[in-house]
Write a protein that binds this DNA or RNA. Structure first.
Lengths: 329, 329
DNA sequence: TTGAAAGCGGTACCAC
DNA sequence: GTGGTACCGCTTTCAA
């Protein structure tokens, strides 16, 4: 691996000059520049990022903290962030926290130790002192924290849209699944849906659900139909849950959406693979990742910020598990 | 951020001594050690990884190159690798190549510039000179390259298992989907299945498929049923494809698996969410990632290698799109 | 058992 | 325009 010294030697100049052409700052004679560039190419030189980071006290690395990349909602977020960051030459150090405090702390620690330029955190612990006491820019993703920069989507409206879709499709005995109580995102959509149901002329009941895992959702679905066999509409807390409910409904020989409607939340890529394809509320995951990256980049470059808490719109995706909107309703 | 100098000052020793207790090498008096440790704690000191990497010419970072984290097969691989690497204190720099040469080169470049300790590459271009001319350890994942270290799964056997499952379930007019010709993994399973079909007393035909995308798979599925309406068994090249075929079959009012069987490949997490749950050949993705990490770690530590091209077993997962094996067959 | 000092590969200030 | 050099924070000889 050639170093800046090798290049300087080959070009017959000092390292300072090489550094100048490298960073394109300061004066350097056109002819010298040519010689230096030739030397760089001949030696196949590229600068050592580690040395750079040491001096600058800042690397071209961004820390990305996710709960679990294995959860189908997150790859999109990651992709969106990565694509945007790459355009500016930043790379990702990436970690899954599993929502465990210890892991989260460990990752934050290594992010700092590697002098990341910034952090994007989809965390459940935004109030950790590690965040407040940090001197790296942080953007929260899919979570908010007081005045801190963040990118989220409008869960309350999303919940309302979901409930409205089910009601317009004329379900009259609706089951609303409340997601994990400790997840603000789940509670936002829950409250949005609740609000609509309360003011509609329908029967409805709420089922508490502890987790988003498919396994738990499966047993929950069984219980749902056992307890409320007359349910003709289900508002799920996310798409995985909706899939489990869909499963159980089909297994029981129900016709979807004629006998029972259901709607998910998130619009993970798999939702359209289900049969029938799942109606759902789409969070623009890829764009959320992208926006978070953009926001972070602006903060890193100390550009003026117009808005610091970005909320993205959600949309109702009607596929085949809800009935056509009935305008006479 | 406290530096080693601050600690040295606070403990009344030189930086050399602090370094010694930090790395637990060389002689240091028990009492001195205690003093130094106390100082580190008081100052909340943790070493600057960048400075370390510069001197050592090696960081605690591992480059992970994936085609696309958004493809549901890869998050598992990533997770497996990460979990294993973490146990040894390594972190991941992570990039999606989209199977584009340029992106792949760019990532490899930054991996080197950041002095990664090693690279795990799920690449389609293992013969790139960037790999042969590299002085970082590389483990290929889901791909092989001559004698290079790699972790794959046994695709040929997988293909055979898939075909056998369909045949044992008594399909007699089988359609075999050939995956993208440029993907060795897809061709392995294809040839395995082909081998079995050739020696069985069944009718079968092959359909070429250009990509793994759901959209392409959808139109392919329509064509399949239009061209071969009498097909009573489909061997897909992966689960996404199988999902598309399943969709189309159900849309046409076919009963699965009574009228037609189908089997996928990979066992992505979503396959059991389908209705009916998809029978498939499982690649142990998480374990493959884990093995790749283990292998890489061994290479990094210059430990003796027993095997350098690890092939993991695949298994037939019978769910509801294949019929019970018929032992009279 | 400890410290001084030379690097690791860059950047940027200051002189010339 | 260009070069000399101190410095980023750490590790590792070498000498004491």
């Amino acid at each position: 691996m050639a170093t800046i010294k090798d290049v300087a030697g080959a070009a017959g100049v000092s390292v300072a000059t090489v550094s100048r052409v490298l960073n394109d700052n300061g004066y350097v004679h056109e002819e010298t520049r040519t010689r230096v560039i030739a030397a760089m190419e001949k030696l196949n030189y590229y600068p050592n990022e580690v040395a750079r980071s040491l001096y600058k006290r800042e690397s071209r690395l961004i820390g990305l903290l996710l709960p679990d990349i294995t959860n189908p909602f997150f790859p999109q977020l990651a992709r969106g962030a990565e694509d945007e960051l790459n355009r500016e030459g930043y790379r990702l150090i990436f970690g899954n926290s599993d929502e465990e405090l210890t892991k989260e702390r460990e990752y934050l620690q290594t992010f700092k130790q590697n002098h990341v330029a910034g952090i994007i955190a989809a965390t459940n612990y935004p109030d950790l002192e590690e965040y407040s006491g940090i001197n790296h820019p942080v953007v929260f993703l899919d979570r908010t924290h007081e005045g801190a920069p963040s990118v989220t989507s409008d869960g309350y409206t999303g919940g309302k849209l979901a409930a409205e879709a089910i009601i317009h499709g004329k379900s009259r005995r609706i089951t609303l699944l409340r997601g994990p109580v400790h997840l603000p995102t789940a509670q936002d959509r829950f409250h949005g849906a609740l609000e609509v149901l309360k003011h509609a002329e329908v029967d409805f009941q709420v089922i508490e659900t502890a987790s988003f895992s498919f396994k738990d959702a499966q047993s929950m679905a069984k219980k749902l139909f056992a307890t409320y066999p007359e349910t003709d509409g289900v508002i799920a807390s996310n798409d995985i849950q909706a899939a489990a409910v869909l499963h159980e409904a089909l297994r029981r020989g129900k016709n979807v959406p004629d006998d029972i409607q259901m709607i998910g939340y998130d619009d993970i890529p798999q939702s359209e693979l289900l049969f029938p394809p799942l109606s759902t509320i789409k969070q623009p995951a890829y764009d959320m990742g992208k926006e978070a990256a953009k926001l972070l980049l602006r903060i890193i470059k100390k550009q003026p910020l117009t808005e610091t808490a970005i909320q993205m719109p959600v949309t109702y995706i009607r596929r085949k598990t809800t009935r056509k909107e009935d305008h006479d309703a």
